[in-house]
Design a binder for these strands. Structure first.
Lengths: 125, 125
DNA sequence: CAGTATCCGCTAAGATACTG
DNA sequence: CAGTATCTTAGCGGATACTG
């Protein structure tokens, strides 16, 4: 197994407080990130497509999540200078790569939701 | 592909605001959850083992995360009535199952941290 | 259509002190 | 050792109103 060495010269290790992996993991793991990345796996989407696909997301959080995904290189934002404006969002190849473990996590949760809810009701007594 | 139907009679779907998968995904995806579950994959751990393994976690967050993992059926907590007390934490089989996608996510982040940091520095100009 | 801007409550999370 | 209790603060995230 290959060890990844990050720019500081230290090996990437999420258990280490200093490792930048920590921050990235933190916001990759966010609720909205999982859903946005997963949604974009279905193809190019416009802003309103995304807000419809992801029930309950506010404009603010959707915009914030998209900007952050863009800054991390997971998503591209293409503005078409038309009236009314049209903005397309797509996954980059890095984003499609990230989508694999993210989809796995969402699927796992969907597949085990009943076991978890049972454990929860058992914990309540 | 099999469709999971949850207790409400609806199919489990994280994109749906009502689906309990949402809440579970939300806190499964949390930073500390990922690290605790991953750490426990190395075997039984006592409270202090975990706090040492996971750099930077506060007592409060560690306890809170462990209690929540216990309530969801991912972790068992075994108290040995000795002086001084000894408490062992272990993954349940559900927890070990969850560990797979979680480990994949942590590993992915560690493996791609350099690409992400490059994208970030590019985004800054 | 695709956002910004602003206000604000809630709680996530850290720091600190104490205990069976 | 393995926590609990309390205080405090940062910022997540929703609601609402406005704009090129």
């Amino acid at each position: 197994m290959e060890t990844i060495v990050e720019s500081s010269g230290l090996p990437a290790d999420a258990f280490s407080a200093k490792c930048p992996t920590r921050q990235v993991l933190d916001h990759i793991a966010g609720k909205w990130t999982v859903l946005v990345v997963d949604a974009l796996l279905e193809g190019t989407m416009r802003y309103t497509d995304l807000s419809r696909r992801i029930e309950g997301v506010s404009q603010k959080m959707l915009t914030q999540t998209l900007r952050s995904l863009e800054a991390d290189g997971f998503v591209t934002r293409t503005v078409h200078p038309t009236i009314p404006p049209r903005v397309d969002y797509d996954l980059t190849s890095l984003g499609r790569s990230l989508a694999e473990p993210i989809t796995a996590l969402r699927r796992w949760t969907e597949n085990h939701i009943n076991e978890i809810e049972q454990a929860r009701s058992r914990a309540r007594d």
